[in-house]
Amino acid sequence: MKHVIVIGGGVAGMQCASELLRQGLAVTIIEKEQDLGGKVRNWHKLFPTFTPADEVLSAMRHRLKISNNLKIRTGCQATTITANSVTLCSGEELKCDATVIATGFTLFDAQIKEEYGYGIYDNVITSAELEQMFNENNVHLAHGGTPKRIAILHCVGSRDEKVCQRHCSKVCCVTGVKQAIELKKLFPAADVFNFYMDIRMFGPGYEEMYREAQTAYNVHFVRGRISEVSPTFNSQLQIKAEDTLTGRPLKMSVDMLVLLIGMKSNEHNITLRNECNLLAQPSGFMQPQDSFIGNVTSNVDGIFYAGTITAPKNVGESINEGTAAARAVIEWLNKH
C-alpha cells in the first residue's frame, strides 16, 4: 500500500488526507500542535455564511474516520522533507512514497507595527484574539465593561513595505466586515468603524455582506490607515488617521481597536528553500510549479503543496486545494 505523509494538520492537510484515505492509500499526518484543525480551531464563525468554524472542523474530522490507514503524529515538526522521507525534529525518519506540505501560514506579529501600541495598550487586540473572545462569548474591555466605540484596522502586516510584507493577505477585508457585523450583533448601540486602504471583496457573497454591514448594521467605513494610537485620560484609545476620501486628518477616541493581522509566510519556509531545494516566492510563500495547472505541485518531484503554504487563501480555497493535492499525488503515484 502506498504511503503518503501530509505535513500540517490544518484544513488543507485534513482534506488532502481524507481524499487519499478514500482512494485506499495509507496516510500519516504530522502536526506540530497537539490537535488537528490548524488556525481554524481558533476561529469563531466563517465568512460569508457565519458558519461556525467548529461545524466545519467536526465534518472534516469525521471524514478522516473513513479508514484505519491513518496515523496522526501530533506535537512534532518535520525538519527535512524529501519525496520519500520526512525527518522529524526528534531525528526520527519516516519513509513514504510522496509528501504533501500543508503547513499553512504564520499570523503577523502586531507588535512589529509599534505605532498601534499592541502589547502596550490593553484594549488594542488582534482579529485572532477577537475570534477567541467570540468563541468564549466574552467580548469585553480589559478592565471590564463593554465597548461603545470600536475601530477595526485593515492591512496590519499586509501591503506594507515598511515591514517587508508587500503581499495582500486577501481575507482580512472580509474578516473585518464579518467581525464588525458580529460586534454590532453583540453591541447594537456601539459605533464600529473599519479603517481600510481598499475593500477587496473577492469571493461569492462577500460584496453583499459588505453592503449589508453598511445598510443593515450601520458599520462605518473610513478609507484611510491609522497612523498612531495613544491612551487618553479616561482610558480610551486616541487614534489618528487620514480620511483619504475627504482628504482631511481625523482624530477620534475609541474603546477598543482591533488589528486585522495579515498572513505571513512561515519561518520554516526558509528551511524548505535552503535544505529541501524547494523554490519560494519573494513573499516567502512557497512557489508552486505553475499558477494555473500546477498550483499544488512543487518544483521537486513527489512533493506537493496544499493550502496557504503557497499564498494567502480562505478556508474554502484551502480545503479545495487539499482535494486537488490528493488527486495530483494519486496521479503521480500511478505513474511511478
Binding site: 498612531e228 495613544s230 491612551p231 487618553t232 485620560f233 486616541q238
Partner: peptide, 14 residues
C-alpha cells in the same frame, strides 16, 4: 525611571 520618577503617557506624546 532610574531616578525615581514616573513617565506620563498622554495622547499627543509623539
Amino acid at each position: 525611571e532610574s531616578w525615581g520618577g514616573e513617565i506620563v503617557d498622554y495622547p499627543e506624546r509623539r
